[in-house]
């Protein structure tokens, strides 16, 4: 697929495969087009050409239709509904489910127990890490088939980032949620992912299993820093 903002082509001839139940990471430096990969899938403000197939169907149409097909996108900036309460944020996550049951909330609270006592708090007043967790919880409320995560580590302290990555791993392992994660922090992402793509100026420079990439000299030097 290709993608452009207006006349500016950002992605050229990208081909990604995401297998059911796996965690796939897209690595790359600033401006490599990582965020655009996710925006292209969700059709957010990009002109896209090419094919995106999702469970045997073509993924196209407006952003909201794609979301309704089971693609939960946590955008950069976390997409918090700041003026709304924490609980309303969760409800919005389940906006497309026919009837979000009590067990949906209970299932989410298992992973994010702190939400229970903060449910009436205005979401905009949460800390950055809490907002990131709320964004994950919100996305998970939709019982998505695939979650698209845009730099969950951005702007967070290492200890909080570690916590968030542990939860992402649990969501994948316990719930079987497929995850496509875009990350600048290659170390963390490769620990989590089964398979990864390295993006350089709008094209895929390399791909392989996490072990392969961790062992690759060039990746180690450019992205892992050792």
């Amino acid at each position: 697929m290709d993608a452009a903002y207006g006349d500016l082509t950002v992605l050229r001839g990208i081909s990604l495969e995401v297998y059911d139940g796996q965690v796939i990471a897209v690595l790359g430096a600033n401006g490599a087009g990582k965020t655009t990969v996710l925006r292209t899938i969700s059709n957010v403000e990009v002109k896209r050409t090419g094919r995106i197939e999702f469970m045997g169907r073509q993924l196209r149409g407006a952003t909201e239709s794609i979301a309704r097909m089971g693609v939960a996108h946590v955008p950069d900036g976390r997409g918090t509904f700041s003026e709304f309460t924490v609980w309303e944020n969760l409800k919005l996550g389940a906006f497309c489910s026919k009837r979000p049951g009590k067990d949906d909330f209970a299932r989410v609270l298992q992973y994010f127990p702190w939400i229970e006592e903060r449910r009436e708090q205005e979401a905009g007043t949460l800390s950055g890490g809490e907002q990131q967790m709320l964004a994950l919880a919100r996305a998970f409320m939709a019982r998505p088939k695939v979650m698209l995560l845009d730099e969950p580590s951005l702007g967070l302290a290492p200890i909080i980032t570690a916590d968030i990555f542990r939860i992402i791993k649990e969501l994948n392992e316990n719930e079987g949620t497929t995850i496509l994660i875009v990350e600048q922090n290659a170390n963390l992402a490769l620990q989590l992912a089964h398979f990864a793509y390295v993006l350089e100026v709008g094209s895929i420079a390399m791909s392989g299993t996490s072990e392969q990439l961790q062992g690759n000299e060039q990746v180690r030097r450019s992205y892992l820093g050792y």
Binding site: T63, R68, P75, G79, F95
Partner: peptide, 13 residues
């Protein structure tokens, strides 16, 4: 209030 994120959760804005 938040049309962008609303679309991402499937709200038909």
């Amino acid at each position: 209030f938040r049309p962008g994120p609303a679309r991402l959760v499937g709200v038909r804005v």
